[in-house]
């Protein structure tokens, strides 16, 4: 089942979104790379790489703003593992809902990305 990696500046935002997504897709594995140490706001390429190390299948990354996206793209460039991990630039909350549900339905990474782009990149 495709894993979702949520990259946000705020740990609380990501935790809250994970709770929301759980209601819709209880089975979809969701990993967080959000906030900094001591609950500070920010994004950290190291946390994204940590999430990459903990995925159980191929994965999709969703981000909030600015440096979350830059750090996600950078982490992907540095990734040397053999999972297929991809980033799609769509709204974090709405995109997360669609991706979580589709992953729960057993859709492939390609199918999920195609659906997200059709929904949000009109």
């Amino acid at each position: 089942m495709i894993n979702l990696i949520l990259v946000s500046h705020s740990g609380k935002l990501a935790e809250g979104l994970k709770d929301l997504l759980r209601e819709m897709a209880a089975e979809t594995p969701i990993l967080l790379a959000a906030g900094l140490a001591d609950g500070k706001i920010g994004t950290d390429v190291g946390r994204i790489e940590q999430a990459f190390g903990n995925i159980s299948d191929d994965a999709l990354i969703l981000t909030d703003i600015g440096s979350a996206t830059m750090n996600a793209e950078l982490a992907l460039e540095l990734y040397a593992g053999d999972r297929d991990i991809r980033f799609v630039d769509v709204p974090l909350v709405e995109g997360g809902f669609l991706a979580a549900v589709l992953s729960g339905q057993g859709k492939s990474l390609d199918e999920i990305i195609t659906a997200l782009e059709a929904e949000f990149k009109k």
Partner: peptide
């Protein structure tokens, strides 16, 4: 720089 700067400047200056 990538590992320590943080924010948007980390990936930018690192790059």
């Amino acid at each position: 720089l990538i590992k320590t700067v943080g924010g948007a400047s980390g990936p930018l200056y690192g790059t």
